[in-house]
Structures are given as C-alpha cells and as structure tokens.
C-alpha cells in the first residue's frame, strides 16, 4: 500500500525541483513556472494530509481542500499580474533575463 510518507516525499521532491528552478534558471518566465511547481507541491501535501488524517466524521479533512482551493485561486491571480509585469518589462527592455535587469546595484 501507498503511505502518507510516500506522498509527502513525492511532494517534497516537487517542491525542491521548483525551488531549484528558481535558484538556477535565469529566465523569468521559467522562474515563474517553477514557482507554480512549488505552490502545487504544497497542494499535493495538503490533499495528502486531508486524506490520511481523517476528520472526526471519518471523512477526509475538507478544511485542507478549501485551503487548496484558495491557493489555486491566488496562484492564478498571481500568474495574471506577474505575466502582465513581465510583458511590461519585455516591452521596455526586450529581455526576460534576470541577469539583464541589474541596473540597480549595491
């Protein structure tokens, strides 16, 4: 049988992949996708907790699923605003590269 731990490890791995993407990639769009991976990794953990740690009524803990719903909504809104900013940046600077946006220095 599959255990809670296995779900958590898989989700942790996804979170790590996303985090590594943020750290290592220099393309802002891909960084943004990696951030989505991190959020979804958290969602997977939440749903796993909701299924494995049943509520008092013996059914999944739906509080966690509501939280997942909120996270998905926020993530979608974040993507919309984020892409708008990235488009504005591209219009002004013709780049989506992190290394190109360093006119502000220490």
């Amino acid at each position: 049988m599959v255990t809670l731990g296995q779900y958590l490890i898989v989700s942790g791995l996804l979170f790590t992949i996303g985090f590594a993407g943020v750290l290592l990639r220099r393309n802002i769009i891909i960084i943004f996708m990696s951030l989505e991976l991190m959020l979804n990794a958290a969602n997977l953990s939440l749903v796993a907790f909701s299924r494995f740690r049943l509520g008092v009524d013996g059914m999944p803990n739906y509080n966690a699923q509501v939280f997942v719903f909120f996270i998905i909504t926020v993530a979608a809104a974040e993507v919309a605003v984020g892409l708008a900013i990235i488009v504005a940046l591209y219009r002004a600077r013709q780049t989506t590269h992190v290394e190109d946006i360093n006119s502000l220095k220490f």
Partner: peptide, 27 residues
C-alpha cells in the same frame, strides 16, 4: 541548497509518526 532542502524534508517525513500510515478507509 536545493538538495539540502530535500534532505531536510526527508528527515522531517521520517520524524512524522503518521507518515508510515497506510490509506485509512473512509466511513
């Protein structure tokens, strides 16, 4: 850093007693 994060997550999962739990059946 990413690898360290993953190792940490593995440790934490290992510490969590409920992690060995198999699928509970629903009522």
């Amino acid at each position: 850093v990413a690898f360290a994060l993953f190792v940490q997550i593995c440790f934490v999962v290992d510490q969590l007693g409920a992690a060995k739990q198999a699928f509970p059946s629903l009522r």
